[in-house]
């Protein structure tokens, strides 16, 4: 007897159990499945979230991979679907397909210096990896987070990042494009902090995980590679239009890769040339 095969295009029903306003236009939702088992995920993977009658969008998983009670997504309102999703309140329902895609290969970096570089909302897909690294920090030589935002009030997970900064064995460097009256930290782009972030570490022994706007990732990866971090030890999380998330709608193609399946996390040595091609 063969079991009926699942339909990969049919969402599972999830319920919002908690909702946090992260900043204007950005909310985090904690989700639990209505009838299915809680899917396991690995840091860097994403789900397709469906808002009833509006549509579906690819959203990174931003919660703790060891928290099995709920699944967290951080959503910025940029279009009709993300706006509808971000405004679902506790008790509300949404559809979820996933998890999909390649993850940050954290576990293969034992003994190495881990460097996380986040730009803006790019911290959301990195958060599960940072939480996992903090949980198992004896496995790694050191942990460093470089965190950039347009303005201080757009620093994502601000209180939590403050908490990480106080943890022994984790360095946090922060920078904003535009300061406000209360900001006493650095002003500029994240690449200006990379020298300080690499510090005295042998760049050969650094593994970097980078997520943010494509141009920020391009220059961050380039500068890290110039500083001596091996191209195969720098990972980026790319973004393209996605409709099916299972490599069949063709829309997320970026050169030979389907970003939904072969990405979104890809090593720099594989994509360096492509990052320089306009409108790929």
């Amino acid at each position: 007897m063969t079991l009926p095969l699942p339909d990969p295009m049919l969402p599972m029903r999830f319920r919002v159990v908690e909702r946090f306003d992260e900043q204007p236009g950005v909310a985090s939702l904690a989700l639990v499945p209505v009838e299915d088992a809680m899917p396991l995920f690995r840091p860097g993977q994403f789900n397709m979230l469906y808002a009833f009658g509006i549509g579906e969008a690819a959203i990174s998983i931003s919660g703790d991979p060891h928290e099995h009670g709920w699944m967290v997504h951080t959503i910025r309102e940029v279009g009709a679907v993300s706006r509808a999703l971000a405004r679902i309140h506790p008790g509300g329902m949404l559809g979820l397909r996933g998890p999909f895609g390649a993850h940050w290969p954290l576990r293969r970096q034992s003994g190495r210096h881990l460097l996380f570089v986040a730009g803006g909302l790019g911290l959301a897909p990195l958060r599960p990896a940072i939480l996992q690294a903090l949980r198992e920090k004896t496995r790694y030589a050191s942990l460093t987070l470089v965190c950039g935002a347009r303005a201080p009030e757009q620093m994502l997970y601000r209180d939590e990042v403050d908490g990480w900064a106080r943890q022994p064995g984790m360095d946090v460097l922060r920078i904003v494009d535009h300061a406000n009256a209360g900001w006493t930290g650095r002003v500029g782009v994240v690449t200006t902090l990379l020298g300080a972030a690499l510090g005295p570490h042998d760049p050969e022994s650094v593994s970097a995980f980078v997520c943010g706007p494509e141009i920020m990732m391009r220059f961050t990866a380039r500068d890290l590679a110039i500083a001596g971090v091996p191209g195969g030890r720098i990972w980026l999380s790319l973004e393209r239009n996605m409709k099916c998330a299972i490599g069949r709608c063709g829309r997320c193609q970026w050169g030979p890769d389907f970003l939904c399946r072969d990405g979104p996390v890809l090593p720099y040595d594989r994509v360096a040339r492509r990052l320089a091609i306009k409108e790929l």
Binding site: M9, G53, K243, C249, R251
Partner: peptide, 30 residues
């Protein structure tokens, strides 16, 4: 290559999701 279309009826209570052919020549594709 395909797109998906989400529709609702006038009551807003009945939604459908359609898979439709798409083309990489359409601007919305990317």
């Amino acid at each position: 290559c395909t797109d998906v279309e989400d529709t609702t009826d006038l009551s807003g209570d009945h939604a459908e999701r359609w898979q439709v052919w798409d083309s990489c020549f359409a601007t919305g594709f990317s």
